[in-house]
Design a protein around this nucleic acid. Structure first.
Lengths: 191, 191
DNA sequence: GTCTATACCATGATAGAC
DNA sequence: GTCTATCATGGTATAGAC
């Protein structure tokens, strides 16, 4: 097994465990056990916990960039593409209900830990913010585009937070519908 | 110094530390040091970490109940009272920017820890939800009242999450204004 | 590249003196 | 009710054999 392959498996596993159990609460032993390698071998690939956090954030960024590129090519117009963003709340509902938003909960945890990589994690939000802003601009929203992007991000975070606390599927459906209605009012059916 | 007084100081200090640094990351030693008692004495008052978490959640609940009673007596009408809830985002902005929403971040952390007291923490959200629902009912919103309460809670959580990540004051001001406008559209200036 | 063994420290928790 | 001393556990991290 090549070093790169093992490294990838470590990062993918750490990503899942950080999401499900939190960064601080996930130990090297947890990750090593899940990957089925020894703790000693683990340290061959990553010297510190911050190093693996950095790799996990980079992985999450790459995944989201790829996702937005898919939306870009599959969506016929800005409205449909932004709709795909809103629908994350439906597509990933079970995971969000169990563990919250992967980006929001990581940022919140790193803020409390006063962690140097907090801003790096917040950069994952920026990926969505910039992409959404571009879509709104393409739809002709001009200077308001960034505010609209932030507003959508905000609602997405709020819904994720409350479904994680209350576990109410109907609430999610209602709010996703309201977000689509809000979007139509600002962009129109044509996009 | 009476036992009750020391206990209160422990709970108040734990409350702050849990908020600023997270539940899991705050150790008994951290709390004991801040209260200026020995670790041994600490265990006279609280046997386990779950016990002190329980006390902290109870304290947060009592504080919020008292706050809502103040709003109830000071606000001339439901609209003004609900406005006080929205304005938390302004009044507590520095703390929220640094550490997020005390309730939202605690719920999120306990969810990741699979902690037995997660639902108890989510009950703090319910306090606001029920109080807001009652205000909307008094304003004549009928069956929609609970949905409106959840919608406001959602936006409050979303703003808290993003200001914690981005540290953007202007964003908060904009969204708080938008929440007031949303409220006026649903209840009207008279309340 | 992978393993075992181990050093070292912080943590939650206990025992017992005062 | 408060203290010091102590323990067991689990965490990060390292050394060195294979």
């Amino acid at each position: 097994m090549g070093a790169g392959e093992t490294r990838d498996r470590i990062v993918a596993t750490a990503d899942e465990l950080f999401y499900a159990s939190g960064f601080d609460s996930t130990s090297f032993a947890d990750i090593a056990d899940a990957v089925k390698i020894s703790r000693g071998n683990f340290y061959y690939h990553f010297k510190t916990k911050d190093e693996i956090l950095h790799a996990v954030i980079a992985r999450r960024g790459a995944e989201r960039r790829a996702m937005m590129e898919r939306w870009e090519s599959e969506g016929a117009n800005p409205r449909d593409r932004i709709g795909r963003f809103i629908d994350i709340l439906i597509v990933n509902q079970p995971k969000i209900m169990a563990h919250g938003c992967p980006i929001g909960t990581l940022c919140a945890e790193l803020a409390k830990l006063d962690h140097a990589q907090h801003d790096e994690a917040a950069g994952l939000f920026t990926l969505f913010r910039d992409w959404l802003r571009t879509q709104f601009e393409k739809a002709g929203c001009g200077d308001a585009s960034d505010d609209l992007a932030m507003h959508l991000l905000m609602r997405s975070q709020g819904v994720a937070s409350l479904v994680n606390a209350f576990g109410d599927q109907d609430f999610v459906r209602r709010e996703v519908e309201a977000m689509h209605a809000w979007l139509d009012a600002r962009i129109g059916e044509a996009g």
